[in-house]
Design a binder for these strands. Sequence first.
DNA 1: CAACCGCCCTGGGTGC
DNA 2: TGCACCCAGGGCGGTT
Length: 291
Amino acid sequence: MPELPEVETVRRGLEELVGRRLGTAVVAHPRAVRRQGGGAGELIARTSDLTVTSANRRGKYLWLGLGAGDQLLVAHLGMSGQFRILGTTDPRPASDPHARAWWPLDNGQVLVFRDQRTFGWVLADEPEGRAAADGESVPASVSHIARDPFDPRFDASAAVTAIRRSRSGIKRVLLAQTIVSGIGNIYADEALWRARVHPETPANRLSRARTANVLTAASEVMADALKAGGTSFDPLFVAINGESGWFDRSLDAYGRHGQPCPRCGTAIVRERFTNRSSHRCPRCQRLPVTR
DNA sequence: CAACCGCCCTGGGTGC
DNA sequence: TGCACCCAGGGCGGTT
């Protein structure tokens, strides 16, 4: 599943589009543009015949700056979304059952958004009303998403304070994207394992130090994954050959139920967590004793 | 308003 | 072999 490291790998691949001009967009599946008021016609009208000026990301959201900068092509990969840049000899996207939308480029290549499970989407958007003092701004559709740990302006100390104001379990807070973004189910489990914190620990019962440890662990595990993802994929293919590539890295907890904890040898357990799974070491990651 | 639940969707895997 | 089910999950809209 694409979480922050994978999405950043995709963003780096999209950077080669800067300076290229998008031709007339094609939308092959209405669900891919379900967030677009006006539907496919609107997306096509607003993203066609414009030059790409930048490739950007916050958390798991991607966007391309287009034209003079007041037009943004935003995308979320969901569970299975991909961007591909097809060469002139590659099969045409019209013959790809998972191609949802595409843009011919002025050099004969084609930018394609593919998505097997259709949780992803693309959206023609504009910058949020108020740009920051330095001119930095994000799409309106991304303005509710917190900065991620790779953002130079991410304030870890403020994030610790905010996390500790919540009565929810720490994992739920990490997944909400409202205090820190970019963390999904895999890296949440990995970060909590590294920090030795039970995923259901109420956030307001964590010390500042333990909370900071969780954030540091999340940053580190995602940085490690980015290092692996960034070197193991040809950027031309914008990550992924099939979907298994996302998991091709060493994980300590996620998906390892029944296997020994790399730290203490106790079998990792899998537990239901809001319609998905949590993986943890029952010995290293315990709930605080309630009184 | 914080918290939380259900739902959207496909295809690989599994058990009968 | 085929069929019915389960599972993976991000995030949004709705409810409490």
